[in-house]
Design a protein around this nucleic acid. Sequence first.
RNA 1: GGCGACGUAGCCAAGUGGUUAAGGCGGCGGUCUGCAAAACCGCUAUUCACCGGUUCGAAUCCGGUCGUCGCCUCCA
Length: 458
Amino acid sequence: MKIFNTLSSQKEEFLPQGSEVRMYVCGITPYSDSHLGHAMSYVLFDAIRRYLQFRGYRVKYVQNITDIDDKIIDRAARLGISAHELAGRYTDAFFEDMKALNVLPADVYPRATEEIPKMLEIIQGLVDKGYAYPAESGVYFRVRNVPDYGKLSNRTIESMEAGIRIESGEEKEHPMDFVLWKAAKPGEPSWASPWGPGRPGWHIECSAMSVRYLGETIDIHGGGQDLIFPHHENEIAQSESFTGKKPFARYWMHNGLLQLGEEKMSKSLGNLITIRQSLEKNTADAIRIFVLGSYYRSPLTYSEEVMEAAERGAERLRQAVRDETMGTGMEKDAALIDVESFRRRFIEVMDDDFGTAQAVATLFDLAREINRERDAGHNAVQARVALSELARVLGLTLKPPERPFLVAEPFIELLIATRRELREAKQWQLADNIRSKLAEVGVLLEDTSKGTIWKAKR
RNA sequence: GGCGACGUAGCCAAGUGGUUAAGGCGGCGGUCUGCAAAACCGCUAUUCACCGGUUCGAAUCCGGUCGUCGCCUCCA
């Protein structure tokens, strides 16, 4: 298996340290609803995790929740609630979104506010070793003591100095130094520390959680490309300085960013589509096909049209696995489909840095084979089982979408029965009328050899 | 300005030195159907932004030009 490692800028053979893959993916800051950019990242890493398990690895997956930061504090103050309450609310919403997207839960979701002791331990260690220094406004990391600072984002301290503006009142020894511990301002939530009451800086939590739950060297560290600098660069600097062990993470994986129109979809720009908005119009399978239909390191542009295409594709796969359309008198599997070759192809493309786009294409090809056999009167059971199984590795359920007409179902069935009688009496006009009227209210009928089936139009 | 990514059919998107350039959506024609839908079959890029170069051979490597995007500040 090969993985593109941001650290080396090339594909490397994946060799985990042990039988259990230790994986850390940067999580959210819960101050508003999560958007499709988040969905992209977490769907991807979910697929990676599922694939590693499919290949026989045990995986320990940790994802942090940054439940204290400037934006949470600001937003909570404006709403007149506590930062804790606000963060809790959006963390719950995030979990709901993930569940709806069929993202498997992480093994641990550590929250920043619950990991303060470990952070203080690391900060103290960094101070003791001379990698950090306290000042009035907080404790800072001394970037110049790290000779290889910039190795992940491919930049040097010198090259960055040019564009840096030094703000007045800065207490930092060097403009690139970053804060580990922020001294509390009046009215802000704070925790006691040897340097006075305060709260953690942004990067320290990931180091603390990573080390605590996964050890000093982890296998895979993932996140969006927007985190490469400064977040992951600083994580490396502080973690490796603290533990004295390199590398902090053996494989750094970064997904490309979701674009909306001409720009990146992001909270700060405000041009976003939330996961729940998207789920109102599209199924989770469609969103996953949209995300996994291209190479994860490339940027992906959202549009209604592309989502619609993904939805139709999802429907096509569902059609192939469902058995309502299979006749009862069909021959069972004449072993006409070489299921193993599809499985091999799936593994081959996924082994090459998680080629999900080609994996999805493999699913479509298998679906076509299944449909072809069905048309020829063969019930390709094994192939359909394989399609479901491989789809599940990508987190696709291929289950029919929820039918939103629960109460109306008996009436729909009644209309279908009436229409059947009309068709038997060759009252085509009336029968067609029922079909088109139902279509107008979002119920699509299909007359198959086994009878009429219906589905809800999304 | 520095670092990085990218430009493949109407749209999305694989492929990164050598058989007919994956797959999805859309479109057109056909099969099936009372008609549809779904499904299947066929067609839909002699060509991979442009210009040079290397090579027996390049979408794939090198140089240049044009264009798009990201990061360098909070962000998946």
